[in-house]
Nucleic acid binder design. Structure first.
Lengths: 106, 106
DNA sequence: TAAAAATGAAACCATTTGGTTTTATGTTCG
DNA sequence: CGAACATAAAACCAAATGGTTTCATTTTTA
């Protein structure tokens, strides 16, 4: 749970982390408030926040003794771009047929 | 590497699996051919295919002694839907401002 | 200033993950 | 038929993951 090995794909792989993102979509929140929404320890939630932070999906700023986390959806663009490539295969019947035909040709 | 605990999010979390999907986007292929594109063992690739298969992102059919795998992009729709929710936060300046304003109100 | 609050950091743990090697099993082809 | 081919299945392994508990640090606040 340390290095820069956490990209967007890995970050959103965990359901708890996806829930955290959804929570922060409403409103920025301090760790303790975030963790109060989950059945796991505050420490565990903090670790998830670190991972999300590495992936730049959230940012945290210290305010007094609290650390306030905020959603940073920009990195999700990478996911959107990745997805876009595959959309041609389902977006309509024609492109599906096109795909089949192309495979037949080979 | 077994149960039905592999959803789309987890399936695409691994870079090798994403590469496998991209390979199959061109054309359906047997395991040995797929694994020839990677620096890991055929067995390891087969396991990745099992995981992709659990997530319904690929399907395999046996033809003679070969098992031919095919891309099944449909489950990526779940990802697209998930993403759609967050797009409001980056799609244009107005919606970003809207987000800020809504948070101020609270 | 001392206690409470909020977080950080470290040590630890069981399970999962991504890989290997080895051993079987079914299929094709000379 | 027997060898070669393609995959399947099993046993094993190190590292990563998602948790925990315990202890320390910083900031309020009564």
């Amino acid at each position: 749970m340390n290095a820069a090995k956490h990209d967007v794909f890995q970050a959103i792989a965990d359901p708890t982390r996806r829930d955290v993102l959804k929570l922060l979509a409403h409103k920025e929140l301090p760790i303790s408030e975030i963790s109060s929404h989950f059945p796991i320890s505050r420490t565990a939630v903090a670790k998830h926040l670190h991972i999300l932070s590495e992936a730049k999906l959230v940012s945290g700023r210290k305010v007094g003794r609290e650390k306030i986390y905020q959603l940073r959806p920009e990195p999700l663009k990478e996911l959107k771009d990745w997805l876009a490539f595959y959309e041609q295969f389902w977006s309509n019947r024609l492109s599906i047929l096109k795909h089949v035909v192309e495979n037949e040709e080979k």
